[in-house]
Each structure stands twice: as structure tokens, then as C-alpha cells.
Nucleic acid binder design. Structure first.
Lengths: 217, 217
DNA sequence: TACGCCTAAATTGTATACAATATACAATGT
DNA sequence: ACATTGTATATTGTATACAATTTAGGCGTA
């Protein structure tokens, strides 16, 4: 039986803060006044400060000593750099997975892929995106490397609120689906090098599109 | 004029804690009693707890709610997984650097490399190690990707106190030097794919050796 | 003896109080 | 009017106090 999930206040606060940032209630560059947020969230400063520290490590918040915290201002360039690192990690994951994936795991992945393809043809944007994200996550998970999974997750948090923009254009949408098809084929063939190369290209390309469609400063 | 470095107490505490762990004053699995450490370090619990949170994010400490913190027990397997992720990141760095390194930067890197080779032939272990580490760091830095640099640094912290074991054997020492030679040649030739491949192999191999020489549980 | 239940001590989590630092703005002199 | 300094206010950093939870051990009972 799996152990009960023990919650700490600062975890909830961190989650809420993350949500506030990702959904835009707090926008880039906004200063975070501890006491004000405390009142709003109805917690004391201690757990809030712990949450701020957490988000700082995730890169969503910047914190200068004695000058308080601000929501990180993300530039187009940083976005590309972020996706570049993610591409390196997902490449590693894809290689590992392609080399060792079990039949049953592949089937499960394939079913996700097929479902995504369906939504793609149907033009159902939100469902397509959700599955896309799930697939990338699944592949990293299948690597079986907890450190890889955790590192990846942390970086993805920063990229997340931009995912919609990423595939905004119809062209890229088409292209991305094609790339996913290629990756699945490489998995099926057990071609690790190919799977890795394709995945890297795919993520990197996504990063480039995000960079291009980024709101000009 | 560059701004004065503003220190926070919890940063110093974090540094000291890290040192305590890396030099073995606190060993794997040791419980960390907050009040005891506070007395020892002469700070209150607040900054210590912040430091603990920092090291938790770095993976040096594990923290279960209401049950306190423990120094992470690192298994051989986790070490290999750690190096695997690092290999992915350094591969990315090597590729980027090989494709775009400037003459002056290459010269500086080469001089580090040559100095390392010297210490290698002279059998000066400590100096060799220090330079080895510096070179890997330098290559990642030259990528010019802050996110890559930071992610890499964070993972390296966990691998650091095991670096000595890693190249313990004379055989591996020889091998590693050879691999470094190959990487430098790839840089010189501007062959990104080769540099990346070699770097990945090099780091992965290091991880395997670390895993093998790991004290049995 | 082994097991469960209860209580006390230890320890961690959260809130608050106090100290240090930064920011904003007025007063002063040039 | 402008720059500079001094002072008040706001805000963050650290210490401490209090609450909640876990851990350890004693006691009785089967």
C-alpha cells in the first residue's frame, strides 16, 4: 500500500503561486510583497517564503537579497535556451527508451500517440496539446531514471505556460505531428540513435518556434 | 565598478552544510537535528531551514514532512543515473561549443588541457583532478547557455564528492586522458557531432566506473 | 514475552516579534 | 532648480515563541 501523501503548507502555497504565475495573475516582472500575498493566501510569512524559495529554484521567481522577489521576466532567447536543454534531456530519454522499451509499454505509448493523432485530424487543439505533453512526459518517465525525470520536470515548469503559443501556427502543428510519427517509428524499430536524433530536433524546433512567436520586448 | 557581493546568512549556512556533507563530517543517512546544528553553527533555525531546503533541491538532503532531514543515501545505481544525465548535458554543451568556439577561447581551453596532460604524465593526481573538473566546467560555460550551466552545476554538486573514487584506478586514468585528447581534436576540427558523441561516451564511462567502484551497500 | 495503548519528550511546522536593510521623500545647501 | 544628505516608512532577514506531530519508552494485559 502506498504511503499517505503528507502535505505541507508551503507545498500548497508553492502550487498556488505557480498557478498564479502560469495563468498570468502575476505577470513577468511583478514584485511580490510578502505581507500582501500572505494576507491574500491567509498564511504567515514563513511558509510563503519557503514557497518562494522553491519557485526560485524552479526559475519562475528571481530573488535579490533584501530587495524581495519578482516574477522572472523570460526573454525569447532564454526560452530557446530552455528548450535546448530540454532537447538534450529528451534526446537522452528517447535513446534509452528506444533501446529497451517493452512490448507492453510501447503499446501503451502508441495508444496515446494514436489518440493524439485523432485529435490532430479532428482539429481539437486542447486535447491534442494535453496528449502531446503527456507523451513527452511518458517517454521521459519510461527512461526509468529518476534524476532525469526530476530535472526534466523542473525545466518543463518554466516552459509550460508558453506551450500554447508554441504550436500556434497551423504549419507547425502539422510539422510536429509528422515529427512525432517519425519518433514512434524509431521506437518501434528499436533504433536508439535515430529516436534520439529525431527527438532532439523535434524539441529544438519547438523551441525555435516559441522563440519566434515570442512577444517582442 | 561591480556591485558588492551581498551575502545572506542562509547561503553561508548552505555552503557550510555542503562542505560538511562532501567532506564526510555528515555521512549518508545521518539525521539532521535542526536545533543541534543550529547550536553548532551558531544561527537560528530559520536560516538553517532555508539552507536545508536549498540542499534538498540539490539532492544532497532528503526531507520528509515532520520527520526531519537526512543526508541522501546515494546508491551505485543512482550515481550511474546521475552521470547519465550529466552526459546528456555535456554532450549538448560539447556540440554547441565545437560548432561555434572562437580561436581565443579554444586556445584558453587548450592551455588548460595541456596543463592537465602535464600533471597526468607527472602523476600529480590532485592537480590533474582539479584541472579535469575545470575543463568540464569550462566547456559547459562556453556553451553560453545559462540554463544549461546552472542545471549542470546543480547535478555536479551531487557527483563531486565521488570524483576521486571515479578515477581511482590507473587504467581509467589513462583511458580518460585519451578521451580528453579525442574531444580536444574534435573541437579543433569543429566537428560538433563527434565532439558530442565523444563527450557523452566519456562522461557515461566515468559514471560506469564510479558505479563499479562504489562501496557495496 | 509479546503486543497494544498511553503518556512524555523530542522534534518539526507555523506564526509572530524584532533587527537590518532598502526605498521614498522631504529638508538643506549650493 | 538641482543635487545631496538625512529621516521616516516599507520591506525583507533573522530569531524566538507557540502549536502540531512524531518518536520512545513504560505499563498493563493476554
Amino acid at each position: 500500500m502506498r504511503p499517505v501523501r503528507r502535505q505541507q503548507l508551503h507545498e500548497n502555497v508553492a502550487r498556488q503561486l505557480r498557478a498564479l504565475i502560469l495563468e498570468g495573475a502575476l505577470s513577468d516582472g511583478d514584485r511580490i510583497i510578502e505581507t500582501a500575498l500572505c494576507a491574500q493566501l491567509n498564511v504567515s510569512r514563513t511558509p510563503l517564503r519557503e514557497a518562494i524559495k522553491t519557485l526560485t529554484h524552479e526559475g519562475l521567481i528571481e530573488h535579490r537579497p533584501n530587495r524581495g522577489a519578482r516574477v522572472t521576466k523570460t526573454t525569447a532567447k532564454e526560452m530557446r535556451q530552455l528548450f535546448e536543454v530540454i532537447s538534450g534531456l529528451e534526446m537522452l530519454a528517447a535513446e534509452t527508451v528506444a533501446a529497451s522499451i517493452k512490448q507492453s509499454e510501447f503499446k501503451r505509448l502508441k495508444s496515446l500517440h494514436d489518440k493524439m493523432a485523432m485529435h490532430h485530424t479532428a482539429g481539437e487543439r486542447d486535447e491534442y496539446f494535453a496528449l502531446n505533453h503527456q507523451i513527452h512526459l511518458k517517454i521521459v518517465e519510461l527512461s526509468g531514471n529518476p534524476i532525469l525525470i526530476e530535472t526534466h520536470a523542473s525545466l518543463m515548469t518554466r516552459a509550460r505556460h508558453l506551450r500554447y503559443q508554441a504550436l500556434a501556427g497551423q504549419d507547425r502543428w502539422m510539422e510536429a505531428m509528422e515529427e512525432h510519427n517519425g519518433i514512434m517509428k524509431a521506437f518501434e524499430a528499436g533504433d536508439a540513435a535515430l529516436a534520439g536524433r529525431l527527438m532532439k530536433q523535434h524539441v529544438r524546433r519547438t523551441g525555435e518556434v516559441v522563440e519566434a512567436t515570442f512577444p517582442a520586448p
